[in-house]
Design a binder for these strands. Sequence first.
DNA 1: TTGAAAGCGCTAACAG
DNA 2: CTGTTAGCGCTTTCAA
Lengths: 355, 355
Amino acid sequence: MSHRPTLADVASAAGVSVSTASLAFSGAGPIADATRRRVLDAAAGLGYSGPNPLGRQLRSGRSGIVGVVVGDALRRSFRDPVSVQLLDGLVDTIGPLGLGVLLIPGPTGPDEPAVDPLVEAAAMDVAVMLWGGTLDDPTLGALRRRGIPAVVVEGQDLPGVVTVGIDDRGGIAAATRHLRELGHERIATVTLPFGPERRSAVADADRIGQITWTLSRRRLDGLAEAGVTPVAVYETPASLVEHGTAAAHALLSGPAENRPTAVVAQSDLLASGVVLGARELGLRVPEDVSVAGFDGLDLPWLAPDVLTTVVQPIADKGTAVGRAIQALLAGDTPADAVLPVELRIGTTTGRAPGA
Amino acid sequence: MSHRPTLADVASAAGVSVSTASLAFSGAGPIADATRRRVLDAAAGLGYSGPNPLGRQLRSGRSGIVGVVVGDALRRSFRDPVSVQLLDGLVDTIGPLGLGVLLIPGPTGPDEPAVDPLVEAAAMDVAVMLWGGTLDDPTLGALRRRGIPAVVVEGQDLPGVVTVGIDDRGGIAAATRHLRELGHERIATVTLPFGPERRSAVADADRIGQITWTLSRRRLDGLAEAGVTPVAVYETPASLVEHGTAAAHALLSGPAENRPTAVVAQSDLLASGVVLGARELGLRVPEDVSVAGFDGLDLPWLAPDVLTTVVQPIADKGTAVGRAIQALLAGDTPADAVLPVELRIGTTTGRAPGA
DNA sequence: TTGAAAGCGCTAACAG
DNA sequence: CTGTTAGCGCTTTCAA
């Protein structure tokens, strides 16, 4: 027997039946202490390290795997701290449930295959889509075909899948109201990508109508909820500091008379880029321009400044996803969750100049 | 048949045998076009979405899963960009091989269980340990017991496992030589954690002798290789900007006469924190103090400055790990890899003051 | 408390 | 080119 020992080998070495040996490992049934010890000893002697998960999985029909489809914010070097933190939290949450996270790349470009092979063929009990999911999403289609239940995070509210999200609109509305109370009248906004085609430019009304990623849409709508029509909407290709800086240069280079006095960015990374860009232009934050963000990240490079931002409960999001997964595995239909956010006022917003 | 259809159902619906139906999906054998179509049609009619991976896995003895044990640099909110980028690259590299990445939390604290249950029980064909692995590592022990081959990244060179790393020592030595050529005599260094017990303080000789994480040790040794004895060694609890800032305050607060004129940090995040901290102290970089890092990250918040740093080939590292995995799965014993690094001179190093 | 037997869904010889 | 047969390693009735 040069091969790796199986439960049958252990059983025969211990002089018991396979079913008894199984019990010795699983503990799922009555077994005499002496017998168990005998089995375990035999296992140790043979170098048997426990039941082969493959056999167990086939038998139970469960893989113990949660497939996590990471949106392209993660794909690009996992540079989105929110997704990364959520992923981390998710790993922690489902670990105790005996589940593991399988990373699945989301769709990247228009040229690549729409669905990763893992979505089609990997063993998983549930799938989580991080920041994604439109109605016609081929990934969602493939999962449905396979009968794998899905949890969508920060996506569209779709029929047949569980959604976990936050109050994007209300959060931006709160930040916007804060700025209005400070006397700001000319407020610009810097957004996350509108869709898979990514641009770095001021968007006109036409272009704004083309937003397909509902996250960006919801956050944009927050301004309207607060009664503000932004003087400019700057669309970025990704939530990165440098794109915020580029936005600042585009939005804040003009003369003071019609320059925005405040900028609401849809992410903290973008917002911190706006702050840095404003400073490069010789503007003081918040004396000349106020900047607010969204996420609630630690941004040590702005120190001693603290960004005014909408803090989202990333840990709670992970917990909510974990709960949804657990419910789905139990055969229940968990309710969608919309978690509250909170405005944290830092040092990057202040009274409008001249107000 | 309210249950999910199996290959047997499809076969009988198509009027063929199971093995023929299997061939229709796998393409691993001769099959008549018409037959295949018939099978596929039957499958479509039944809503069969392809062979159940669990059955296939048990049969083939392969799970198609690469377990990636993420060191605690990743665990803490995945905040180490290098590990995150490597993980991303790894996903890309092994995807085409039909493999998926299972995330496995590494050991966290001294109180927690030393080995994650997934290491003991999850199905995987190979394991990768990201930045970890000491001789007595319980994770490595569990893997060996299970007969799962392992690739260790940035760890110790252990017998029986494949190691992929970079020329840490040579990289730091190159950066140090660069500083010496600029006339620097008093060079301090800011290190990664020494071991699981994390401190934020200047380390004395005694403490330096206690370094258990060989990565930090190798990088520290780079200074000696360049013939430099650092005037101070500052040990940080994690590779984060704020700890670099703290180090700067500790190292650079004194009078100019015996203040270090250059700081070599073992990571870019630390280095950028040192730059920010130096500026907070009213020091100009590089006029008053030069700063060099390690990694080669994009640091947009230092713009327009560019950090002088040792660039490590993260993508190549991912490729090397992928190759090692492939070899291990083929039953070969791949060679250890030590990848070269390259000094990139930016704007944060300059002539020593008065030199 | 233990054992015998069935079968999870699939693939790979092998025979036809 | 297609069908028959035999497991992969395990858990779980059900009987003893």
